[in-house]
Write a protein that binds this DNA or RNA. Structure first.
Lengths: 188, 188
DNA sequence: GTCTATAAGCAGATAGAC
DNA sequence: GTCTATCTGCTTATAGAC
């Protein structure tokens, strides 16, 4: 793997786990076993440019993964359930957050850096579109599909935050349990 | 007002708006018009001790405010609706986040500092207890009341995060609209 | 209880060799 | 394309006067 991709991969993991500011450039470099020269060659604007590259890469990875899951399951409920189980499983086995979350970065940076805010926004829009599209094919009205897509996004992101705070996977499990309630109003 | 309370008040606002790491000690000091001497006199352990004091103060303020709202409204739905409107109004008029949110701090610090994580956890528990208590009096079973309290907490926190990312109040408004769906299952 | 001055360390970023 | 060495500025924290 080329150095640039390696840096994006390692940095993404670190940012997801500890946020943006808490991760030093030197820590990323150490994880990749490269030095500053490589970083500033590939990302002339430094750490923030690297973060934005991570968000873009994450957006692609999440989109591919979610679209695959949503293709393999017939209903939004089943697909989401599967996705949540995967998230819970990752959290329990690795003990740390990987996968679809980047809420640390959002909360920390959205009010501080406009380019980062836009990258995060684009990511969330993508996720909601995936829910929306599936819900629409299930017979939900456009408005309801859009509203429920938002509710799914917010409750899952909020639950991930609570999992971090509680050091447990209980919040995500409860959301999984409540999926039928959240997806109420279905017409098919 | 004494210096200590002033520092807690100003620091809370700054932390809520920009997160923890993004706010420098000097910025807080400037906002209070005091110098380092005062800070390290009242908070010997420095910035992190100040943050924890902020979280405790926020916990009290939120509890008092929410309990008041939940006392004045007969149903959870009305009370929550009122609370969300207040949140939306604050966001629209002041253009910045004040009030019940501290998700930036959670996401940023929960994996990095254990005392801060505990303070955040205690805050979320309080909020959920307020929802839970009200829901229980409305005839929800203990389990359902507890689950819905969590769903309210996560979806509102998630919505606040999305509001920051989108620079709009739309997500919170959608959650407000969906309250009947979220509170489905009511038996009274 | 609050001030000033200063310390000590680390952040992110750069220059130039190879 | 990656290295080493260095720079600048900012961060939190401390010491001691008032």
């Amino acid at each position: 793997m080329d150095t640039k991709s390696l840096m994006i991969e390692k940095a993404t993991l670190l940012f997801q786990q500890k946020g943006y500011k808490s991760v030093g450039v030197s820590e990323i470099l150490k994880a990749c076993d490269v030095t500053k020269g490589a970083l500033y060659h590939h990302f002339p604007n430094g750490k923030e440019e690297l973060l934005i590259a991570c968000l873009k890469s994450l957006k692609e990875a999440i989109t591919i993964d979610m679209e695959d899951i949503f293709k393999k399951h017939s209903s939004t409920q089943e697909a989401t359930q599967f996705m949540l189980n995967k998230l819970i499983h990752n959290l329990e086995t690795e003990g740390k957050l990987t996968g679809y979350t980047f809420s640390s970065i959002v909360s920390e940076m959205a009010t501080v850096s406009e380019p980062v805010r836009q990258a995060c926004n684009s990511l969330y829009e993508n996720i909601q579109t995936i829910y929306y599209t599936k819900l629409a094919t299930e017979g939900f009205s456009n408005e309801l599909a859009s509203d429920i897509a938002l509710l799914l996004t917010t409750s899952i992101e909020g639950a991930i935050m609570l999992c971090q705070t509680q050091r447990s996977t209980a919040p995500l499990k409860t959301i999984a349990k409540l999926l039928p309630t959240i997806l109420k109003g279905r017409t098919s």
